[in-house]
Design a binder for these strands. Structure first.
Lengths: 207, 207
DNA sequence: ACCGCGATCGCACAATCGTTCGAATCGTCA
DNA sequence: TGACGATTCGAACGATTGTGCGATCGCGGT
């Protein structure tokens, strides 16, 4: 695209690549496809990126890092576990909806990384899951015993949220905050039998 | 493997291929990989299968058909929407847990099909989702208004269930019926505020 | 005008891919 | 035994892949 510095060009490349990866899949996409779609020559890609896999890693790592950073900010000063959970969901889905391609790549192409790349992303994933699990633990203290195994509940919630790339259209008639509200209510009602109070919805969504 | 007729050999080939597809991914797996893993020569594969994509289609179509058939049987004579829902979840997860590789391929490699193959699987998928949505509609009639959008709830439940290939180990300390119980309770509590009665759990799981 | 360097490109290489084809092998019945 | 159809195989093809290499371009400083 337009002229800019090195960092902006790399960002544009990653954005363009994420779109193609999301549509065709990582392994099905060739470096020639990425070159054509981003407007650079084939060998020009290698000035910004060491390999095809590093490209995938950068997409996953940068966006995941952004999600985690958004979460940290969204949880700052929020004490009530109910609020913390709904903020977690809002942050996750908010970023998801505004970065559909990148998040589909993050969710769907986790197994396409190997070695150190895989290890780093998995570590982030583990920490992120742990943060949700800790919220659930707090939730049990404040709202009585859980109706489901905490580990199962954690991954059930991740499943609900991450599955959306299979069906959700951010431009459709269900906007993101409504989606977050629905999933939060769905989860909370089943996990601790709590109906979400009006005070805890909605929040501003990180993006 | 062992000597058998054409049909059994094809079945064995599909089972073997599903395992490799589940581990390495469809596009990352070569026909040579499949040949080696199944004990047939490279060209020998083409006696049973017209193309690599037909192989993927057969895995998806046969197993999906089995899931749907199991569902039909599991729902026979069951009227109570609560029971119908828990049977749906049990059937889905029961088949999932006993056919992890095949179901991972079905869930994760849907976008790897094209043309008529894709169309056929998508049609089955649509019908299957419709059957769940109908149960949810019945549920609303018998247990009051839903706490979430029906479409969102449908795909949320599919998300919970289909995501399990990312974390669930059937050999671990959570067995399938407990998992199904957890997810059913989680979903029902949030969707209609119902706690699952003892009478509706557990059932025999189709497999 | 010339130099230095970041940025970009054309081209080629070796490897691997899915698929085809004709030959070899198998079991079975005449 | 001989023949025939079902089954399996080795070898090869053209296409595409990710990546490396050396040349070239554009431009700011001297």
């Amino acid at each position: 695209m337009g002229q800019a510095g090195y960092d902006e060009k790399l960002d544009a490349l990653l954005t363009s690549a994420a779109k193609v990866f999301a549509e065709r899949g990582y392994h099905q996409t060739s470096m020639r496809d990425l070159a054509q779609h981003s407007g650079v020559s084939l060998s020009g890609l290698y000035y910004y990126v060491k390999s095809k896999q590093e490209l995938l890693f950068l997409i996953q790592d940068r966006n995941f890092t952004a999600v985690v950073a958004g979460l940290t900010e969204a949880l700052q000063g929020v004490r009530d576990p109910l609020d913390r959970l709904s903020r977690f969901v809002e942050n996750h889905l908010g970023y998801f909806a505004t970065h559909m391609a990148e998040m589909k790549v993050l969710s769907h192409e986790s197994g396409s990384l190997t070695g150190e790349y895989l290890h780093k992303v998995n570590a982030t994933k583990h920490d992120y899951a742990r943060r949700l699990m800790d919220i659930l633990a707090d939730l049990e203290k404040s709202h009585g015993p859980a109706h489901a195994n905490r580990r199962v509940a954690t991954y059930a919630l991740f499943g609900m949220m991450n599955w959306i790339y299979n069906w959700y259209d951010p431009m459709g008639d269900i906007d993101v905050s409504l989606l977050a509200q629905n999933l939060t209510r769905l989860f909370l009602g089943g996990y601790v039998g709590a109906s979400v109070s009006a005070s805890s919805l909605p929040h501003a969504t990180a993006g």
